[in-house]
Amino acid sequence: MTDQLERDLRALFAEDAERAPAAGALADDARRRARRHRRSRMAWGAGALVAASVTAVAVLGGTALRDAPTVEQAATSSPTSRPSGALPMGPLGEVVSCAFGYSPREVGRSAFAFDGTVVAFGPAHSDRPRGVLHHVGVTFTVSEWFAGGSGPTVTVDMPQPGGWSEDGLVTYGLGSRLLVSGDHRWGGTTMADAIAGYCGFTRYYDEATADSWRAATR
């Protein structure tokens, strides 16, 4: 049965919809925006190519999680090629919009942020029947909590290392030291539904970035 409130909600939303602006060149604008997005990714990709190639060799060897190599192993031949910047992990085929670009300030608004080293992989813990991301649960030993958590270890869901993402090959493994920020996928209040942020919100560790996260979350 439809009650008065439901009828009023229908009328109100219909009234609001009538006030919507007219669609102009939506298709052209969307294409332009998509091209800008692609160009920015290509620019980032060129800079990251050398670093990615080192770790790519390491992770392409196999997809079994237990065989995931360490970044240290990959980097021993050339210490200067240690990966830096954003972890390429935009989800392939998932419905995700990078509506907010990465900045330390935006990290400050994330549900959690920490500096940690990958020590184990396991099954994802945030999937539900209607929301499956095909991620893995990645356990970190935490060097420092910036926001949203406590304790020496934490597990968050992330794309599997060695897989392909929208940003390229997902290049990290056991021993990788990462700066991870993210959100509670289902609005929880504990780390039980924690998922690492895409779009630059999960990054390879470097001291300057860690400092900026510390300042943003103070």
Binding site: R19, A20, L26, A30, R33, S97, A99
Partner: peptide, 25 residues
């Protein structure tokens, strides 16, 4: 889509931005 975005946001500029974000995706 733009109408739905407007009902969601209540703001013409944000509705256009939201629609373009979705269409660019």
């Amino acid at each position: 889509l733009l109408r739905l975005a407007y009902v969601l946001t209540g703001d013409a500029h944000r509705a256009e931005d939201l629609t373009q974000t979705a269409l660019a995706d």
